[in-house]
Design a protein around this nucleic acid. Structure first.
Length: 1033
RNA sequence: AGGCGGGUAGCUCAGUCGGUAGAGCAGCGGCUUUACACGCCGCGGGUCGCAGGUUCGAGUCCUGUCCCGCCUACCA
């Protein structure tokens, strides 16, 4: 557009013409480069601006963008862009996680495939070199993918969890925890993955429910030969490690056996029969349990209680060790069968039965996890967990949605010590050294001698730390800890931690503990946990199911803006996000919508250049849309502050589409296309102003299309800014609250809506311009007639206050204004009579209900006066309505339909002198409204009764207006009527019928009627009534 | 088994303080209206899982119950 004053920006397309439809693929890549090159993503280490920090949950280096990442990136980018525009020193720190097991597995797999080697063939050093090489080559795809989404991450701060600084932080943390007595090495029963040959934390074990297995029973013969005791197990092979048989201390069947021994049929060992009330449920199985402390967590606890020996029967690859005797060397599953067969040969098999069990599987490789006795490093969590709980309890960190606090609390209250050592190569090697005597020396750097005995031949612990260990330090290590950096003091505690609820336990809880321990302060003020993204059927996306949606496919097809907006608008709290592509498509249409609104504005600007904001008072529509903008800003801002992304997105959507586009632009057209230059300039000025504000409001959600348009706006609307992403977040002052304009517009919208309904339902051809005759209090009439041209444009009905014609007319009334339209010859009298008769019946029924309520002393006495008053007003209105319709029906039935001037639907409309020519178009003089005989309508004060605008207009604002306008009272009552009618209709007495259906909607919602077109089926006819404007709450 | 979340229009979901349910999509009808057919206008569609209770009034609060999902712990 030549009229824009701005320099063509670097990122602007060569052409100034806007494509007829928005093309995200053409636009999006340009702007990301522009922003990044100009450094808009960068946060300052020190700033006068208040800090606002979020660390991106570091994606695995092996990862590529899935919808969970896309959701995370979208929500965090919305927060960050919002706060950045709002004057914060917004820091969004990207990072990548080394993902120990996952990465090592991938490289090992590749090694096997391409070179047929294992990591052991290469040796540790060479293998790690390969992993780093792999990391350099492939790890980081996700970085580019975040750019596609428009994520405004401060790439200058990007970190990797195994970079030097991170390694320093990990060593520092490890040493300090050790020194503080919060880290120890011990032999414990841990989860072991035989496939990956490493220990796992409790959290890394997935429990697969309902696996079909079998419960096998066998007999242990008593040592003294006096009998046997039958036990049941799902793991026969572990009997080789049995060191007791447990029964319930009060079980009469076994009470005499407690203290006796059984003879192990395979090993020949004597095994005690012990009593344990915790382990044994006498009602289950035989009531006797074999106890294998070295291979079962419950049994381990029993062993501790009773001082039982531990007999480990498995090697690290889950084959049986020497303790397995004749089964040594067999795989655990082969041994299972073999043991059963062997026992059977002794005649001790007591049968099997099908049994469902839960299997612990390795989160990474799905192998069945084996509880094993092993020496590992553990973090003692209890003291830290207590601090974390206290910090949450006193509000230092708050959870959104709040309910996650409970989950957090219960988790923290039941934490076991955290096994942090892993038998892997890829990761932070544990900074512990052992001397020949087995003493441990823990140090930040390789020590020269043993801290205990001075031995100089030291070897470092082979193991590495759990990946989550380094992640737990991320909120401060990513900002340079243990160095006291400026960014650390600026951005710690982080303002918000935003992540999926599934890693609350893995990550959030551990960051809380570590942050409090090392920084003395919570790691973040707020935790917002988002839901999981699922497919449209609610199924978890997985490669095996083949229902994975690749976000990049979506952005390629619909644009990143559309995907972002969809994710945000579906991110309602406490619910899974079921992503359906049609929704994304719909939001692409939304981008296109605002694009075209901009095209419209820029087209007019090109034709009539405007170099500064008009100083003229905006039109009524202009004042209205400015007021609505202000409300949209307030609503959106509040929603974002509450992490209600869905509400925020919908508030913007509603404003842009249904208010700005559907109403304001239409209402502005007469002025914009008109001949009056000053009127035109004022309207265009308003349009551009509102559009610019709307773009800023939408920007965090749809950064690309908003920037593209914004850059094309004239400099005076943008205050000369270089990018919308660093423009000021709109405030309420961007819109001018104007209750009066809103009230008047509500009336106009109602009138237009009523006319549209009438026209549509009477089947009046759209091209045919009708003349609507208004009647009502002068001020009300004037509001509409002043806008008669736009009203005509919106509804194709000219509005005059001429004398209503005689003959058959349709009439509708809204907000105290009645509009009568001549329909002689256009409709079917008989059909209208039938419809009106039904309507009359409905209203009478409705009125009856309300009167019953009012007749109840308990209601009148106990309900608030206000409610009672509303109900009374409603009753009065219903009564009035009933009279009108009754008269209308009477006339329709009476055959006095000739031009007697009274066939007008029961409205006694006195003839008034024609005071204006019929409006026929743009050049018509405004109608001067002539007050007519006052009906029982309230006189308008500030504004006419607000109501829900004919369609889709926001309710919130309307509600407010209502609350302050006495004139609204009567209308408010209608809502009560509507509800009452609904209730009536719901009663089982009234079976579904056309009449009842009609009653639900029309009697309640509609205050006036209109005539129906002929040839409509009766049932349908029954529902046709003019929309009652009184919908509001 | 315990904990948490959910069950509202055909679908996906809102619904704040208890005042008598509403968006998007889908559907139906109409529209070559000069920003947009990725559009415009109109319309239909609900026993708010079920049963009780509290209340003048319940989608909303209480009790019970049935389904679905997740988390945690699991019966060897």
């Amino acid at each position: 557009m030549k009229s824009t004053e701005s320099e063509p920006s670097a990122a602007a397309p060569a052409s100034n013409e806007l494509a007829r439809a928005y093309q995200p693929a053409e636009v999006e890549p340009r702007w990301y480069r522009y922003w990044e090159e100009r450094g808009y993503f960068r946060a300052e280490d020190q700033s006068d601006k208040p800090p606002y920090s979020i660390i991106l949950p570091p994606p695995n280096v092996t990862g590529s963008l899935h919808l969970g990442h896309a959701l995370t990136a979208t929500l965090e980018d919305i927060l960050i862009r919002h706060k950045r525009m709002n004057g914060f020193n917004a820091c969004w720190l990207p990072g990548i996680d080394h993902a120990g097991i996952a990465t090592q597995m991938i490289v090992e797999r590749e090694l096997k495939k391409t070179e047929k080697k294992t990591r052991h063939d290469l040796g540790r050093e060479e293998f790690l070199r390969r992993v780093w090489a792999w990391k350099e080559q492939y790890g980081g795809r996700i970085r580019e993918q975040h750019r596609v989404l428009g994520a405004s991450l401060d790439w200058s701060r990007e970190r990797f969890t195994m970079d030097d600084a991170s390694s320093r932080a990990v060593r520092e943390a490890f040493v300090r925890l050790y020194e503080d007595g919060l880290l120890y090495r011990a032999e414990r029963l841990i989860n072991w993955c035989p496939q990956d040959a490493t220990a796992l934390s409790d959290l890394e074990v997935d429990h697969e429910e309902g696996v079909q297995g079998e419960l096998w029973s066998f007999a242990y013969p008593l040592e003294d030969g006096s009998g046997e005791i039958v036990v049941a197990t799902t793991r026969p092979e572990t009997m080789l490690g049995d060191t007791a048989v447990a029964v319930h201390p009060e079980d009469p069947r076994y009470i005499g056996l407690i203290g006796k021994n059984v003879r192990h049929p395979l090993s020949g060992r004597a095994i005690p029969i012990i009593a344990d009330a915790i382990l044994v449920d006498p009602a289950f199985g035989t009531g006797a349990v074999k106890v294998t402390p070295a291979h079962d967590f419950n049994d381990f606890a029993v062993g501790q209680r009773h001082g039982l020996p531990l007999i480990s029967i498995l090697n690290k690859d889950a084959t049986l060790n020497a303790q397995g005797g004749e089964f040594a060397g067999m795989d655990r599953f082969a041994a299972r069968t073999a043991v059963k067969e062997k026992i059977a040969t002794f005649g001790l098999d007591r049968g099997t039965q099908p049994h469902k069990l839960a299997l612990g599987r390795c989160q990474r490789c799905r192998a069945v996890v084996e509880p094993m006795i092993s020496t590992q490093w553990f973090v003692k969590v209890e003291p830290m967990a207590k601090r974390a709980l206290a910090a949450v309890a006193n509000g230092d960190t708050r959870f959104y949605p709040e309910s996650w606090k409970n989950t957090f609390d219960r988790w923290m209250e039941n934490l076991h010590d955290w096994c942090v050592s892993r038998q892997l190569w890829w990761g932070h090697q544990i900074p512990a050294w052992y001397c020949g005597a087995g003493h441990v020396t823990v140090a930040r750097a390789a020590p020269h001698q043993c801290g205990t005995c001075g031995d100089t031949s030291l070897t470092q612990d082979d193991d590495v730390l759990d990946t989550w260990f380094s992640s737990s330090l991320w909120p401060f290590s990513a900002f340079g800890w243990p160095e006291q950096t400026a960014s650390l003091s600026s951005f710690y505690p982080n303002t918000v931690m935003e992540t999926g609820f599934d890693i609350l336990t893995f990550w959030v809880s551990r960051m809380m503990m570590m942050g409090l321990h090392f920084m003395g302060e919570v790691p973040f003020r707020t935790v917002f946990l988002h839901a999981m993204v699922r497919d449209e059927k609610g199924e978890k996306m997985s490669k095996t199911k083949g229902n994975v949606i690749d976000p990049l496919d979506v952005t390629a097809k619909f644009g990143a803006d559309a995907l972002r907006f969809t994710l945000a608008s579906m991110a309602a709290q406490g619910r899974d996000i079921k992503l359906a592509l049609p929704r994304v498509e719909g939001n692409k249409a939304f981008a296109n919508k605002i694009w075209n609104a901009a095209r419209f504005a820029l087209m007019h600007l090109q034709q009539h250049p405007l170099d500064k904001k008009s100083s003229a008072t905006p039109s009524l529509a202009g004042r209205w849309i400015l007021s609505r903008l202000g409300r949209a800003v307030t609503e959106t801002t509040q929603a974002l502050d509450d992490f209600r992304f869905d509400q925020a997105a919908m508030a913007v959507y509603q404003f842009v589409w249904h208010e700005l586009c559907d109403w304001y632009i239409e209402l502005a057209k007469p002025a914009l296309y008109g001949e009056d230059a000053s009127v035109r300039a004022a309207e265009l000025s308003t349009l551009l102003t509102v559009l610019e504000g709307a773009l800023r409001l939408l920007h965090p959600f749809m950064p690309f299309v908003t920037e593209e348009i914004w850059q094309r706006l004239p400099a005076w609307t943008r205050r000369g800014g270089d990018s919308i992403m660093i423009a000021k977040w709109p405030s309420a002052s961007d819109g001018v609250p104007d209750d009066q304009a809103e009230g008047k517009m509500a009336l106009v919208m109602d009138v237009v809506g009523a006319m549209r309904t009438m026209r549509s339902e009477c089947g009046i051809p759209p091209g045919k311009i009708l003349t609507g005759h208004m009647r009502g209090p002068a001020e009300l009439v004037r509001v509409v007639s002043d806008l008669s041209v736009p009203v005509a444009l919106l509804s194709q009905v000219n509005v005059t206050n001429q004398s209503p014609p005689g003959g058959l007319v349709a009439a509708t009334s809204v907000a105290g204004v009645e509009i009568v339209v001549q329909l002689e010859g256009l409709i079917d009298v008989e059909a209208e009579r039938a419809r009106a008769t039904k309507e009359l019946a409905r209203i009478e029924k409705e009125l009856e209900q309300v009167q019953v309520r009012l007749g109840s002393a308990s209601f009148v006495d106990r309900a608030p006066a206000e409610v009672v008053e509303k109900t009374r007003a409603n009753a009065a209105e219903l009564a009035e309505k009933r009279e009108r319709i009754a008269r209308h029906v009477k006339r329709l039935s009476g055959g006095h339909m000739e031009n007697n001037g009274n066939g007008n639907f029961g409205f006694d409309i006195p003839p008034t002198a024609p005071v204006a020519t019929e409006l026929t178009g743009v050049e018509s003089a405004p109608v001067v409204a002539e007050p007519v005989a006052p009906v029982a309508e309230p006189v308008m004060e500030e504004a006419p009764p607000a109501r829900k605008p004919a369609h889709k207009a926001p309710r919130a604002a309307v509600k407010k207006v209502v609350a302050t306008k006495p004139a609204a009272k009567k209308k408010v009552a209608k809502k009560v009527a509507k509800k009452a009618a609904k209730k009536v209709a719901k009663r089982p007495v009234a079976k579904k019928s056309a009449a009842k259906k009609g009653a639900k909607k029309s009697a309640a919602k509609k205050s006036a009627k209109k005539v129906v077109a002929k040839k409509k089926p009766a049932k349908k006819v029954a529902r046709k009534t003019v929309k009652k404007p009184a919908r509001r709450r």
